[in-house]
Design a protein around this nucleic acid. Structure first.
Lengths: 138, 138
DNA sequence: AGTTTGCCTGATAGTAACTCTCAAAATTTT
DNA sequence: AAAATTTTGAGAGTTACTATCAGGCAAACT
């Protein structure tokens, strides 16, 4: 059994956020000791990890709560949960593509500045420099 | 020259957000027509794209404003801007790795449910089913 | 024994970055 | 010219934290 501090370190989720998530009903089986202090089991930590996963790909807290509730309801909701995971995966893949695109743009920008620095050129794209120039759009 | 609606469609950033960004000082060269209506040039659209890029990798608006201000200041800030782009790229790469990790978890979950459905098994991980079981942690 | 230290608690306030609503202009469509 | 659509700014509302604070409890020093 782990205290909130240990779980925060283990999962890289702040204590504040863990309490917030607990209050949001994300850890329905989380127990307390006789002094009202939260004690996380390994299972609770697994819940933290799945919540963290869903959050990190942009799932809203309301939707996460719904997923948790489906879990609690047991076997009859397996198909529904399966579909949620599938949709989430698709969303994550889309984010991957988007992130890749932005990384390409950053790459382009980096080279742009590199060239500028190496050749001591002016930043002709900057509209402040009133020079005829091509658009910087990648 | 484009109206805000056209830019919203072109860049996939909502009109609301474009106005919010404009008010935040992200498009310092954005012009208006005689009736106070914003008219975006190709350059302004390039600004929208770089702001979108920085935002999408988690750069705070305050930091974006700082970058924009550096751009306005001209050549003397090229090295500083270069460093910002480099750091942003590193951050984006880190996000890529994190997203990959979460995608692996979703893959694992998907297969877990698939197996459950195909074999009509019980969801032994769900703490609701009081069965001895291994942790679900990936 | 007393007190300090440190972690934990809930309640509440504050923050970032939108997102929405609205009413009044401006523009476009019919 | 009337109707429908856009654009505008101001301001309220939302989400998901994040920080602050006072108070409780327990173990460690003095």
């Amino acid at each position: 059994m782990y205290t909130i501090k240990e779980v925060a370190q283990k999962t890289d989720v702040s204590e504040h956020t863990l309490r917030f998530w607990a209050k949001s009903g994300f850890f329905p089986f989380l127990k307390r000791n006789q002094n009202n202090i939260r004690l996380f089991s390994e299972d609770d930590i697994a819940w933290v990890k799945i919540v963290k996963c869903l959050r990190s790909v942009g799932t809203e807290n309301k939707a996460i709560k719904k997923y948790i509730d489906l879990c609690i309801m047991g076997d009859s909701t397996i198909l529904e949960r399966y579909k949620i995971i599938q949709e989430t995966k698709q969303k994550a893949k889309q984010q991957m593509r988007e992130l890749k695109k932005q990384l390409d743009m950053l790459d382009y920008k980096e080279k742009f500045y590199q060239n500028l620095i190496e050749n001591n050129l002016k930043d002709e794209w900057n509209p402040m420099n009133k020079v005829k120039h091509e658009s910087q759009a990648v």
